[in-house]
């Protein structure tokens, strides 16, 4: 390695160059080279980043042509999502993010795009009637996210199952409100009971 770049070695003749004196040409060539190396150091990560992006794009294209698409379980409750499937597939995260900020910062809790509502409708139950985590393998969120290779960062904090009392007609009204159609079901149910 040391012998790989003989030009960079400083010969005895240069050692006599005073610090403030003019510099022998070899030194400035050497410095040019080191500048080039610096530039290389800066450029390498950029190149790597570019390559990774290109690879990502290629993979995405290949993925869309693949046959084995994810099997996404149907929602267990309700018959209509808060928005069209097309919109939800594409924009669910921006809808969630937008409402998340409104709810956390401003305290608005009436909008329909809450993660709790997603879980309430889309979480499945197992054969014994127990709720399954929505991010468990093959479940609503996970099936698509593992297909798209996008990490979900919601359920390390957020509940991945509906609240225990989440049974239509039995729950507290405030729990139903963040989801229009469960609210409607609740009202219809209440009406029927009365």
């Amino acid at each position: 390695m040391a012998c790989g770049r003989p030009k960079l070695r400083v010969g005895p003749s240069q050692r006599e160059g005073g610090f403030t004196d003019s510099v022998p040409a070899t030194v400035s060539r050497m410095e040019n080279q080191s500048m080039r190396i610096t530039a290389l150091i800066v450029c390498l990560p950029l190149c790597a980043f570019g390559a990774a992006t290109a690879q990502g794009l290629l993979l995405q294209r290949a993925g869309s042509q693949a046959e084995n698409r994810p099997v996404i379980p149907k929602a267990s409750k309700g018959d209509q999502c808060v928005a069209d499937t097309e919109i939800m597939r594409k924009d669910h995260m921006s809808l969630l993010n937008h409402q998340r900020d409104e709810t956390v910062i401003e305290g608005i809790r009436s909008e329909p795009y809450s993660l709790v509502s997603c879980v309430n409708c889309h979480a499945q139950t197992d054969t014994s009637g127990q709720a399954i985590r929505i991010d468990a393998e093959g479940q609503f969120c996970e099936s698509c996210h593992s297909y798209a290779a996008v990490k979900i960062d919601c359920f390390t904090c957020h509940a991945a199952k509906p609240a225990a009392m989440e049974v239509i007609g039995n729950a507290e009204p405030h729990l139903m409100r963040d989801n229009p159609h469960t609210l409607v079901s609740y009202l219809l149910n209440k009406e029927a009971n009365e």
Partner: peptide, 11 residues
Amino acid sequence: SIIADHQIVKP
């Protein structure tokens, strides 16, 4: 006036 030059270190 100190006489000095700068080098890269050798491994």
